[in-house]
Design a protein around this nucleic acid. Structure first.
Lengths: 216, 216, 216, 216
DNA sequence: GATGAATGAGCTTTCATTCAT
DNA sequence: GATGAATGAAAGCTCATTCAT
């Protein structure tokens, strides 16, 4: 995975040149928001952790919510990353002979993404239910864009006879449930137990393939 | 499903006799917490919505967090419900001939539970990451008790040769991912689209069975 | 003049029963607003002067501006007072044989009103240009109601042949200018010099009468 | 009226050469102060409106109050303008045969002055009660200088037998009340109604003359 | 001379909690 | 048990002012 997957890295180098102080504010905000939640984190706490005056936060972000959005919004777009393929169908055959190959690549890709951006992802998951702006972006980028591309992929392999007939929506849901169920358990719910990552990944992929592939 | 699955019902009839006011406080708190989150809900708002004086809340619940815990804690225990079987193995054969039967029963059972308790479940999911007491209870009741009983069940069907060999933890994870992936999508993420509940439920169960059952 | 002309008195006894603390807040606010202006007065300063916690202010007045309006608004209505006469024309002859009598009564009346309510009047004059709500009330009660009744009076004396023909608006403006020019100079602009009140009042009235009365 | 009566013009050409930026600051400050009041206007707002950096304001004016004073102070001196007559008594006969002529000239003169400087005058009237420096200047230039010269004029016409005997202070007050009552109503209180300027001006002057002149 | 990031005191307002009635 | 006035700490945010560039 390229460094560009590190959202934090992107936030800090972003657009124009950010002040040192601005960067510290972002880092501090991510840490606090992810530890205590957005509403329970005070701006004075962020300022103290960042080593800046409280006013400095508001010079760069009009409101506390602005600060939140500036952190979480870029994340949304990045969730699309593994599906951004120009002329998706033509490219597919060369890239991934089988749905299994695709799944394997995606799990690996999303796993790295998740690991590197865990705090921001926690913030995102927590705040989507309460911040209409975020819900909007989520629906746009994930529920629509990402889902649609995933579905196109599934249909492609169905057409090739690799996958059983089933509404692509259902196939996507079942695939995504298995993958994200794995990643969530692994990194968010019970990260403290010992995981044999390779085995569990392969097991998850095989599980999906058994459920979706046409028996040869 | 029995009425006793309605957590709210239980909360309101609980223990001894609650005042009318107390009941109104709980109902109001559930509504507000689930809509705006715990930290973003003020006690004065709850008081207003419940039609009681601010002081009345604190007469019954020492702190705001006490109020939260009094709502969410009973939920935890109830998540165990479908697994509470005395002498589990002996009972199983008679109750559910196959793992498939068990899955079908559980999905239906949890679905009703989810639908009836949606707001409280939302609160629970939101607050577990931030409230140590809740995390503790969750680990105890769900990650340990519920998981352990689920695992015992899986091992039972493995022993009978119905399910393939695989660490029961993995089998539980894959089963649970599929089921909760379905229920989450259905009731929390995209409840607004039209769902053919029966078909999708069956599809989900078949998906799990394909992935886990020994090919006859 | 009756005690009821004391706006402060009315504010404090108003409507229902006000807390001791509420009364102190009003008294303190009037003092500070009139000394330093609304925008330059902080709520913490008012709280300190009133001997209450800052939160107490906001328990009774939703915002700082609410506090201002609650003080100034009642003043507006009271400016109408000397003109509130039922069936104004019929009553007039018996009450005031001549316009001069009326003027004399009104000057005396408004003088007492002014003296007793000086701080609130200062606040009102200062804030009308900046508070749209107040401007609205002012236009309604003063520029419209008060002016219209004053004009009716003038027309009455014109009809009796006591006053020269002239648009009543002009006659009112000239009368009011003289009276308020006197009262402003006397009590707001140069209150520090020694005034022979009786003589100056009479001089002002004679000045108006010379300008407006039909030469006998 | 000469251009020199335009205070803004004077402010901008003042002293030496002002930067373009400085001029913009003054124009912006006048607009904001007159619209929202001094205390309710922020320097950042002025900077934005002027199109300069916040720091630039403080390069030219040590404090926000300095900026206010630099705008209002020159106004004070200018209020004297129509009375600045060298060897006042000797000049008078040639300039104004009668008090009526003088009044007429002055009303016209002050009217133009008022119209051209309305925003600055509004600021001045608003801030005099709260800024000791301004009150001092006002007392010096207006309440003393201007008043004294006005009084001298009145005494001149009394000595010539044109005006009735009366303390000159009272005569000045009555004259000034009528004139400023007119101008205030015309340009500040109810500028929105239609005014027949010529008629009302003449009416005001005749009103004063009736009240003050010796009946021939 | 001009900038605008940075400051920190102070602003208005909210909040969980207390307590006399 | 219930009230709601009162609290004061802390919240989010604004402000005049400074200063390195």
């Amino acid at each position: 995975m390229l460094e560009e997957d590190l959202i934090l890295q992107q936030l800090l180098n972003e657009d124009d040149i950010l002040t040192e102080k601005q960067k510290k504010i972002i880092v501090a905000a991510i840490e606090s928001f992810s530890e205590k939640g957005f509403a329970a984190t005070s701006t004075s706490e962020i300022a103290k952790k960042a080593g800046v005056a409280e006013g400095t936060i508001f010079r760069h972000y009009k409101t506390k919510k602005d600060l939140l959005l500036s952190i979480v919004a870029p994340m949304m777009a990045k969730l699309l990353a593994p599906f951004i393929l120009k002329d998706i169908n033509k490219v597919l055959d060369r890239q991934f002979e089988t749905y299994e190959d695709f799944l394997r690549a995606m799990v690996e890709n999303r796993r790295e993404f998740l690991v590197k951006n865990l705090p921001i992802i926690k913030i995102m998951l927590q705040e989507i239910p309460f911040q209409p702006e975020l819900r909007e972006q989520f629906k746009e980028h994930v529920a629509k864009d990402t889902f649609r591309r995933f579905a196109t992929l599934v249909e492609h392999y169905q057409a090739k006879g690799q996958l059983i007939e089933m509404p692509s929506m259902s196939a996507v849901r079942l695939s995504a449930s298995a993958i994200f169920g794995f990643l969530l358990a692994r990194y968010l719910i019970v990260p403290e137990i010992e995981w044999d990552d390779e085995t569990e990944t392969e097991r998850t992929i095989q599980f999906v393939m058994h459920g979706l592939s046409r028996k040869a």
